[in-house]
Structures are given as C-alpha cells and as structure tokens.
Amino acid sequence: MPVRKEASGRRSVQAEVEVPGSPEEVWEAIATGPGISSWFVPSDVEEREGGTTVSHFGPGSSMDAVAKITTWDPPRRYAAESPEAMGPGSATVGTEWIVEAQSGGTCVVRVVHSWFASTDDWDKQFEGHAHGWAAFFRILRLYLSHFRGQPSVAFQLMGAAPGPHGAAWGALVGPLGLAGAAEGQRVSTSAGAPPLAGVAERVGPSEFPELLLRLEEPAPGIAHMFAMPMGGQSFLPIRVYLYGDSAKDAAARVEPLWQAWMAERFPGPQAG
C-alpha cells in the first residue's frame, strides 16, 4: 500500500475492506465508541462535527491517540485531524472514514490517512499503518459476520522478547499449544495455559507471524496475536474480544490468568 504523492505536497495512504452489513450497521461499528472498541482498541467518540475521538492504545494518557472530528455525515463519511500525530514537529494528519454500500448486503469500508510534507520522512510509518489496518480489518469483518451488535468486553496484553520475531513467536505459540495451527482447524490452548478454544480463521506467513481465532471458549469472541520487530526486540501483542451476555464474567475470569502467564514468560508492560 504505497504512499500516493501529489504535486500540492499532499500525501496519502489508504486501506479498505468489504464487510457484511447495512451502511447503518457498519457505521455503528466504525463511528461509535462501543462499536470501535468491539474490534479495534478501547475508544471514545463524540458523535458530531467538532467532537473528539480518543483511541486508547495502552495504559496512561501518553498512549492515547486524540483527534478532532472535522466532518460528520452518517452513515457515509466522517473525517478527523490529529496535530503532530507522529510526534513533535510532525505534520497534522487527516483521517477519513468512508462507507460505500454494495449489492448483496455488504459495504466497503475505506480509511484514508493524508498529510502535507516535502520529504519522505514519514512515508514508511504510514505504509506500516496501512498494513496494520489490513489486520484490524480482518477482525472487523469477523466481528460483523458473527457478533454484530452484541455486548463486548475486550482486553489487551503485551509481551516482549529479545532477538528475531520468528523466535519470539515460537516462544509464545509453542507453550500455548498453538504452534502449527492451520486455517479452518479447531485449536485450543495447552493444559496450564490460559483457556482459549476456537477455529483458526487466519494463520500469517512466517515473515509476518499472526494468528486470528474465532473463539468458542472462554466465551464467543475473537483472539488476535502477532509478532512485531521493533528496536532490536520483538513485541508480542495479544488482543481478546469477547461477546454476548457472558462476556463480562468470562473476561473477569480469564484476563488475570493471561496477565500472570504473560508476565511470567515475557518482560514488558501488560495493558488491560
């Protein structure tokens, strides 16, 4: 997903996905706090032009991404701006969300990041954002296909390991009993590991290790884990989304087990 460069200095990158649902149902998932929190990260949205969106990527306000809504046109489009989104001195970044109805009861969701720059300094980071959206959009499609509109509780964990991300990935999925999972296969975690059971919806290639599960246990839901190299080490994020009337109790029961399991095996912060 390369950066598009215009003569005016405007640069942009985009990602899109086709998902099931009416425009109103899809809008609920991408433009409200409870909807976004059901497949992305915990989020708050003031649903109006001039309102604020906050995405909580970890504990503490330093991990919050804050933007001001500049366009609000439900259920078709909204846009927001984030000053210095990539750090002090960086450009203001505009993010536009578009919902386009298709035949057959589906919609295309498109997200476009744009900014003005005279150099390529930020291009790689934004290309990485586009690839990141591709992973989250797989979760969105799974959510809308199986859990649309249900009550949701989510938690996030983070481990870190030295060395190549392939080795770090093995250190995660091996003890979990999830190594060698194949798409379409029913899998479950090993005895002594926190409980997860369901169907493997996606298994990433070795160069981009990733596992996306549609859960039956500890409650209906989705689990997503992957390995990401950064700064000479590998980060191992795990996100668990649980749905339905049993989600709250199930999350309260298993999140502490996951926190303890990850803290024992991997250093690094644990984000709930």
Rank of each mutant, 00 (worst) to 15 (best):
D123E: 13
A197S: 15
W115S: 04
P2Q: 14
A65S: 13
A182K: 15
S145F: 05
E100N: 07
W258D: 02
S22G: 02
F40W: 13
D249Y: 00
F136L: 07
S62W: 13
E28Y: 06
S55Y: 11
M228W: 12
V203R: 07
T189E: 05
G35T: 08
G60L: 09
P164N: 13
W97Q: 07
H146R: 15
G21F: 10
R239H: 10
P256W: 00
Y243E: 02
S246E: 10
A252M: 05
K68A: 14
E81W: 02
A160G: 15
S90W: 08
P59A: 12
V112R: 15
Q14E: 14
A179R: 09
F155N: 13
A251S: 13
A15R: 09
P74A: 03
G33Q: 03
G184P: 05
Y78A: 02
H146Q: 06
G89S: 11
Q259G: 12
V54F: 04
A181N: 01
A251T: 08
G132M: 07
G232Y: 13
P205I: 09
P83H: 09
P205G: 06
R253P: 00
P209T: 07
R214W: 02
P205K: 06
A65F: 15
A67C: 09
P218E: 03
V41Y: 13
H129L: 15
P162G: 12
M63N: 14
I30F: 04
P209M: 06
V93A: 09
S103A: 14
Q150C: 00
E6G: 00
A15C: 06
K5M: 04
M86Y: 12
L176W: 06
W258A: 04
V109W: 09
S246L: 07
G51Q: 08
L242C: 07
F126E: 09
E25H: 06
P220L: 09
F116D: 15
F40V: 04
F266M: 02
G87P: 00
A251L: 09
E96Q: 14
E216Y: 04
S61P: 05
T189Y: 04
D245V: 13
G21V: 09
G21N: 08
E210F: 02
V13H: 10
P175W: 08
P194I: 04
P256Q: 01
P164S: 10
L215G: 00
T92W: 11
E255G: 00
V240K: 02
P151H: 10
E217C: 02
P59E: 14
V187E: 01
T95W: 04
S114F: 11
V54P: 00
A227R: 05
T70D: 04
E201V: 15
A134N: 06
R214D: 01
